[in-house]
Structures are given as structure tokens and as C-alpha cells.
């Protein structure tokens, strides 16, 4: 039986389109609202990345930082984040959820406790931004034992030698960072170049699902139709901020945006 993440990729592939992955920060702008957003966008997105906000992020751009600080300011705690996922899963059990965050949150919770709790609340995968390979070897094995996908990251600076070692240790999904940037940067590399790197990864590791993230927006997404999956994060966070500033409902606006994104790659 395929795990939920691989199944989501397979379904997208069958529909001849990339999987759409969204990123929203847990607790942005409140626990309740972030759950509502997840519910609404899950009608269009194939996999939901849930950001675990951290207050000293070393790889997030302005939009995600704003969302994270807002969530932390509104009092979000690790246990609330697990609760948001389990509440979501009560309604949409088959929709895969991936946590994306920084290692200190896991470290303080205790790796084993954290994984136990992930399993219990229905988290299917983990992206730990500041736990690169080979530092993540032991933890990624622990994830595997608990049937949780540990998602390795690759970037344009990853050497070929590293690329081979990392993909060898990778589980079912790999995340390619499109360019040298924090999240939400403007796409400063041509899609052609990004796709060349993407194809290089696919050649080395054809069976693993590889998604592209960073700089993917409504404007750029249609350039990458022939890929396994695409992640949109900062643009969604920006839309939440914009909606709040204009006293509009972020749930409606974000869900409209994700529906549009889906159309562009379908």
C-alpha cells in the first residue's frame, strides 16, 4: 500500500499534472482560522505543508516571517499545532500533511515524543530546514521507523557527490530549492535552468517524487507543469496578510488563490 504522500503524487500523475503543495503557518492568524484555511485549501491542494513557526528562522523571507511572528504573537504552541492537524484529519483523513520547521522545536519536544505525537495526530512527513544531510541521518531513520516521510532538501549549491548521497538516503519525496534565496524571493533564475537541475535530480533518482519550491507563484507556476510537484508558500502567506490588512476574510481569499494555482497546472 502506498503511503498517503506517494499516493497523492500518483493521483496527480494520473491526472497528468504536478501535485500542488501549499504552505501555510499553523496558528496564522489564529488557531481557528489556520484550521479553516487548511480545510478550505485542501479542496484544491494535494499535499498540505504546515509551517511550525519559529522566532529565529534562518531561511524564511519576509512573508513567512510575518505569518510566523503573527502566529507566535497570538500564542500558538507546539501542542496547539498538533491539535490543528488532528482536527483537520478528523475531516480529511486522506489528505497528507507535512510539517515544515526548524530543528529546535523538535529537539525541545524530544525526537521520540515528537514523532509519536506526529503519528498520533496524522502528520505524514517532516521538512526540517536546518537539519541537513548528513546531520539528519539518525533522525530520518527514526522517522522511517515511524512511517513518517523525512523530506531531504536539495539546492543549487548541492554538489553532485552530495546529491547522490542525499537522494540515496531520501524517502519517497525530495524538495528542490529552486534558487539561492530565502523563501518568497523573486524568481531570479530562469525556469529553464531550474528545470535542468530538476531533471538532473530525476535522472539520478527517478523513482522519488521531487518537488520544486521557492519563488513559485501564480505568475511562475505554469512554467513547471512537467514536474512531480510544486510548492507555493510565501504568496499564500502574503495573501493572508493582505486580507487581514484590508479586513477581508483570509479563508475565502486564500482558497480562491489556491484554486487558481491549481487551474494553472491542470
Amino acid at each position: 500500500m502506498l503511503n498517503p504522500i506517494s499516493l497523492a503524487f500518483k493521483k496527480a500523475k494520473d491526472a497528468k499534472r504536478p501535485a500542488l503543495l501549499t504552505y501555510t503557518v499553523a496558528g496564522d492568524s489564529s488557531k481557528k482560522q489556520s484550521l479553516e484555511i487548511l480545510k478550505a485549501i485542501s479542496n484544491y491542494a494535494d499535499i498540505l505543508e504546515v509551517g511550525v513557526p519559529h522566532n529565529t528562522p534562518v531561511a524564511d523571507g519576509g512573508q513567512i516571517q510575518t505569518s510566523s511572528y503573527r502566529a507566535i504573537k497570538n500564542g500558538i504552541k507546539m501542542n496547539d499545532i498538533f491539535k490543528i492537524v488532528s482536527d483537520f484529519k478528523k475531516i480529511k483523513n486522506s489528505k497528507p500533511v507535512i510539517f515544515m520547521g526548524y530543528y529546535n522545536m523538535i529537539f525541545q519536544y524530544g525526537e521520540n515524543n515528537f514523532l509519536k505525537k506526529c503519528k498520533k495526530s496524522g502528520v505524514n512527513g517532516l521538512i526540517v530546514v536546518d537539519l541537513p544531510w548528513p546531520e539528519n541521518k539518525i533522525f530520518s531513520k527514526k522517522c522511517k521507523k515511524n512511517s513518517i516521510n523525512f523530506i531531504q532538501l536539495l539546492s543549487p549549491t548541492t554538489s553532485n557527490k552530495r546529491l547522490k548521497s542525499i537522494t540515496k538516503d531520501a524517502h519517497d519525496m525530495i524538495y528542490y530549492i529552486s534558487m539561492l534565496s530565502t523563501t518568497g524571493g523573486k524568481l531570479k533564475v530562469s525556469p529553464k535552468k531550474i528545470l535542468a537541475n530538476y531533471n538532473k535530480i530525476k535522472k539520478i533518482s527517478p523513482k522519488k517524487n521531487c518537488v520544486i519550491g521557492f519563488g513559485i507563484t501564480e505568475k511562475t507556476i505554469s512554467n513547471f507543469k512537467n514536474t512531480d510537484g510544486l510548492v507555493v508558500g510565501s504568496q499564500i502567506c502574503k495573501e493572508i496578510t493582505r486580507s487581514l490588512n484590508n479586513r477581508q476574510n483570509p479563508v475565502i481569499n486564500v482558497s480562491k488563490m489556491v484554486s487558481k494555482l491549481k487551474k494553472k497546472i491542470s
Binding site: 531561511a59 536546518d130 537539519l131 541537513p132 546531520e135 536539495l154 539546492s155 543549487p156 549549491t157 548541492t158
Partner: peptide
């Protein structure tokens, strides 16, 4: 200590 850094910084 250690190197808890994003993949992009591994090379530099």
C-alpha cells in the same frame, strides 16, 4: 556547536 544550517549553506 555543529552545523544546523539550510542545505544551501552547506557548500559555502
Amino acid at each position: 556547536g555543529g552545523n544546523f544550517v539550510p542545505e544551501t549553506l552547506k557548500k559555502p
